[in-house]
Design a protein around this nucleic acid. Structure first.
Lengths: 339, 339
DNA sequence: ATCCTTTGCACAATCGTTTGCGCAAACCTG
DNA sequence: CAGGTTTGCGCAAACGATTGTGCAAAGGAT
């Protein structure tokens, strides 16, 4: 039952009912008795205003869009959970869209979301192209990028400290005696991967180790391709003594290849992977990981977006919010004594 | 830019523009020239009708609600992905809500979704209480339950063949010589768990093995509790020779306990777990699993819902759609020769 | 030239809210 | 009792679309 029906039922005008239901009865000097009657009948008939009509009138839908490349990726699933929870706590609902790692689908989803008049968008963009995202800047829609970002969009952003994470991982390996440290990357055009590779190289440089292009493998965010490239890495002579996998999916590929090559972790090879997972500690040996603060990222993204919505004056350039990562040491990394 | 603005810009009435944009120009005898002018200017200014206003007028939002207990559970994440994809292919968007395994949050989410005038709801209900779901039956909202179901709701439902999955797993173990087969369950009030336990018992009965209450452990859908209960199972004399874990989360708990007890799979204990996961094949030994057709479930749920929406006559009782599961044999199960 | 039909489009009501404004009735004040 | 103020609420116009109806202008028939 909606407000209109309730008003008719009570023989009171919709305006009055609306004001009372909005909790502004006193402000508009509605008699206490009338207020009471409305409120009681409203809860008795469980009458609530139609959100659609409200949105149309108020030009605000209390809905946030969440556009991510792949909800079945546990990282994005956790992110979505945090976003949804925070949004609901603030009275917002979340329109979910999955771009399936495709720029075209992404563009289509954005159009759909704009048609629904979302109040703001949390976007983890896909790929290296941002031309199709220009509508977002021209539409003045509050926007927060998360995880992956395009600097060219000049929008707010929330990322984890990918640079430090990779650098710290390399530091950790170096401290244990590793010198031939390979890096298994995903799509190079992603800002996430770029930052991690930068951290990887910084870690090497710090330690006085020359960066070697042949130790930087991968290039697609795919388990199968990660496996193939790891196989190549493992076939080299001399073999790298450690691998830094830049995502959980890539780590799975690496693990496949290691198993097929009949090598033992960490005796033959140390492995560190980005993204903490529930199963990481149950592998044999348990996997050393770099944990991202996924929950915090989701929460921060919602907060950043709501701040923009409230201000309605979107700042031209917002410094990215960078959240710290954490190295979780487990058994997949060991001291390297030979050579 | 919306339809109204476009109409003013062109000096044409909104009605005409609406009809042309709806592709019904000929039907209403709008001159070809006018149609062309409208269409060209519409795409030039990238003008599209406001979905909110359309929804209000048409009393249909082309939006489906998806309410699940935990999007960070990979099973539900994959389900969400399939649902979102199928829905978008049919021109619908998905409002995501996460009930966080709480009946109260679930009720709150349902209210929110109803306020937004979703056209239908895909629901994986939580817990053993369904009283708060009655609004759904009285509101005549098209509804499809998925994974977990309440028969009392008398709504359409899509589930995997949980009974056969568990029974086949037991059959498999029995064939290899196992007799003391334990079962690690989750919340008993969930229809999913109930069906799987039924399958477990059926498998035992078939083989002439008496069901023993002390071999049915667990009771909460939690990794920590699963670990504790598995510890108890493993402490018993004689020990069970195999464990059937009724979900991926429970399997993780079981693996923890096995590791702490310093037992070896499959020499000391065989393990089968529900839910196929990317990491299952990378454990040592690789985990034998019962794979659910998650993608198909999502697709079927959307199709079932859209069918109801199109008919507008919701059938009083719909037989559940039961999709087959698949036993994936890997290394965590071995022949049992002793005793 | 008149009447009838077709063509081509606009008018206005509607969906369910919110909100500026106005208007009675009741209540003071002098 | 006239005039002013307060109290309590309704009217009507938006928001932006869809759709039944109506109405001119153009074309054809007689």
């Amino acid at each position: 039952m909606n407000l209109k029906a309730l008003a008719q039922h009570l023989g009171i005008s919709a305006s009055t009912v609306s004001r009372v239901l909005a909790g502004r009865g006193d402000e508009f000097r509605i008699a206490k008795a009338t207020q009471k009657r409305i409120l009681e009948e409203a809860s008795a008939m469980s009458a609530r205003p139609d959100e659609l009509a409200r949105s149309l009138r108020l030009q605000s839908s209390r809905t946030l869009g969440l556009l991510i490349p792949d909800i079945s990726n546990p990282f994005f699933a956790s992110l979505a959970r945090a976003v949804e929870r925070r949004a609901r706590a603030q009275g917002y609902t979340v329109l979910l869209a999955d771009s399936q790692e495709s720029t075209e689908v992404e563009a289509e989803c954005i159009r759909m979301l704009l048609d629904r008049r979302i109040d703001g968008l949390i976007l983890a963009p896909v790929g290296g192209e941002s031309a199709h995202l220009e509508v977002l800047t021209t539409s003045k829609l509050p926007l927060t990028q998360v995880d992956r970002v395009f600097a060219s969009l000049q929008a707010a952003s929330v990322v984890s400290d990918n640079f430090s994470g990779a650098r710290d991982a390399v530091r950790h390996l170096v401290k244990l005696g590793h010198r031939r440290i390979a890096c298994l990357q995903g799509k190079e055009d992603s800002s996430v991967i770029a930052e991690r590779v930068r951290g990887y190289r910084a870690g090497l440089t710090e330690a006085g180790i020359r960066f070697r292009g042949d130790l930087l493998a991968g290039g697609e965010h795919s388990q199968a391709i990660a496996r193939d490239h790891t196989q190549r890495l493992l076939g080299a002579q001399p073999r790298p003594t450690a691998i830094l996998a830049l995502s959980n999916l890539l780590a799975l590929g690496a693990l496949e290849a290691v198993r097929e090559a009949q090598l033992t972790i960490p005796a033959d090879l140390s492995l560190i992977a980005f993204d903490e997972q529930p199963w990481a500690s149950l592998l044999s040996p348990p996997l050393t990981t770099i944990a991202q603060p996924v929950e915090d990222m989701g929460t921060a993204a919602v907060d950043s977006l709501l701040a923009q919505i409230k201000l309605t004056t979107r700042k031209p350039k917002t410094a990215p919010i960078v959240l710290p990562v954490r190295l979780i040491q487990r058994g997949s990394v060991a001291v390297w004594k030979k050579d």
